[in-house]
Design a protein around this nucleic acid. Sequence first.
DNA 1: CTGAAAGCGCTTACAG
DNA 2: CTGAAAGCGCTTACAG
Lengths: 353, 353
Amino acid sequence: MRKRRPTQADVAARANVSPAIVSLVINGRVNGNVRVSAETQQRVWDAVREMGYVANPVARKLAGSQNRLLGVFTYETIFPLAHHDFYYPFLEGIEEEAQVQNYDLLLFTRTDPNGERSIYKDGVNSLQIADGAILLGTHKEYTELPRLLDEEYPFVFVGKRQMPDREISYVAADYVTATREVISYILGKGHHRIAYLHQAGRIAAQEEREAGFRLAHEEKGIPYLEALCRPHEKEEITPALLQQYLAAGMTALVTDHTNLPLLQKAIAALGMRIPQDLSLAVLGDPLNDVRGLTAVTGFSIPRPEMGRQAVRLLIDLLSDECGPSPRHITLPCTFVEGETVIPFSAREEMHIL
Amino acid sequence: MRKRRPTQADVAARANVSPAIVSLVINGRVNGNVRVSAETQQRVWDAVREMGYVANPVARKLAGSQNRLLGVFTYETIFPLAHHDFYYPFLEGIEEEAQVQNYDLLLFTRTDPNGERSIYKDGVNSLQIADGAILLGTHKEYTELPRLLDEEYPFVFVGKRQMPDREISYVAADYVTATREVISYILGKGHHRIAYLHQAGRIAAQEEREAGFRLAHEEKGIPYLEALCRPHEKEEITPALLQQYLAAGMTALVTDHTNLPLLQKAIAALGMRIPQDLSLAVLGDPLNDVRGLTAVTGFSIPRPEMGRQAVRLLIDLLSDECGPSPRHITLPCTFVEGETVIPFSAREEMHIL
DNA sequence: CTGAAAGCGCTTACAG
DNA sequence: CTGAAAGCGCTTACAG
């Protein structure tokens, strides 16, 4: 049984003032519209001290309007075993900016009756508990989003998200420019047959990398082989595929990081060394996946900054008088030179099994 | 201007019932003292769905019931750059269990007027917004805890915490047993001069490791040298210190993981190899700190399980009718054999610079 | 300058 | 079985 704490009314009674005065004195609102004599203030503070009064934050929040709670929603668990390095940097930025903006963070971990996470449980938008929310991570489908948009619930995606005929606010990384930069760099090293290994059926981020790949080639006036940049299923990432590439003249290979471990295995199976036999670049942070390679050429995704900006954008949305207008923020990635790409002329003879 | 969230009153109006009925239906209190016809219940749920109604957790809390929000409080940032691997496994467990128990998680990121995190801001317990809270991480001082205890706010520590004359609920790892096991193992390998390198002025976890160290020696009837297990400041972890140890006969070295990088540097500076020249064990998870060592002998701290149990303990505390009674849960660590300890007889001659 | 009152959005006795 | 009402502890107009 918790003992009852003194309330504002208790303090007011003791100080012989009305509760309103207690509120005003405590919140330092005594110099604005309202004047309270120094003597009265003193009486209030004395009473506060004597009774050990602490304002109830819940009541405070209810009487105010916002609750300064920012939601964070993911369909997957947000602290997953596997993707250790994936969410973390985003959360880092989100936390930092939430702290700066003086908001608390609400992680939605409750599930629907089926034990799965969803925005709508029993048809009810469970994000409503927060002033607004940041959504991140992969979503199998976007069936809940249109409804969220209809409701005009304020939310921001981390990562580019698009829906036909709808506008979604997001903070994204500029994969087009980043990829173009990497590809230009490799082309500049004299490689003219760059293979681009990427998974089939991916999302916006994937398409942007493809666009960047094409752009770089066009800018340099170097044609690229369709055979070297077709999407592949995960299962197709095999030594056999690499041999096809080699047969087509590949001397450098770029990939998005998701299939890197598989790729490394295939490369190792062929007895090939990086970069002596094959130059390699990763279109994104290599993270912890890369074993045995210290400085991989590629680019760094500004994940913490994306998190920070998402928080700022969301708060903008909240304070927006003219209604929630979707906004898009695109942040540049940073080129990472690394050591896995060497000049075309410097590569050694290939020793393929 | 965002449209106002629908309130209970709105739903009540739409369903043609009183607000009280909405509350009862939503909270499933329709089979106890109060009966509500199935048809009325349906009307309420329909209205809830149509309007996207979600109960305001703040109002709920104020009106006296729980809001299914579990707080997570740390004085440091919870997603810190440096301690990547430290909080994460705890959070993993906390999230998992919160999901199972159907609670949401509230991360306290707001700061006091000085820009620092604290439980009391303006004398107000900011944790109050959640039903209870899990505290973790290092705390410089515990000035806020006595007050939290006085208030009888329900909270659970991850990691052992003690205060004179006060009882604090916590979920801890059993470092005594784990350390004893590691030391016994090393003694069993024939090493009789084990150095224990640990930092001065540490916490409960530290004392437990010391106790385990002593216990293992006593059990085997092997005396240990005080000179080999004195606490040291971080700055003292130098090649010189190791040479002192060697002069005293050290053939094996154990340490808590916090000073591992420093230690590795000192060992390398002496040109010593592990385990050929010196056996090494770490009293805790080596995490990512250990470079160049694949399988370090030591023990694994059940961090995710600690997180899970902390959530369960907290929920127990919440549902406790007879007031919050502090409880202590201690979980076993797992011995990790590794490859950094070899038999005393198998070690090579030392080559000390 | 100060007080009485309404209201934030819920829950929970208490009448009908 | 259902509704009207009080109350949780605060803040904020609004009267005096």
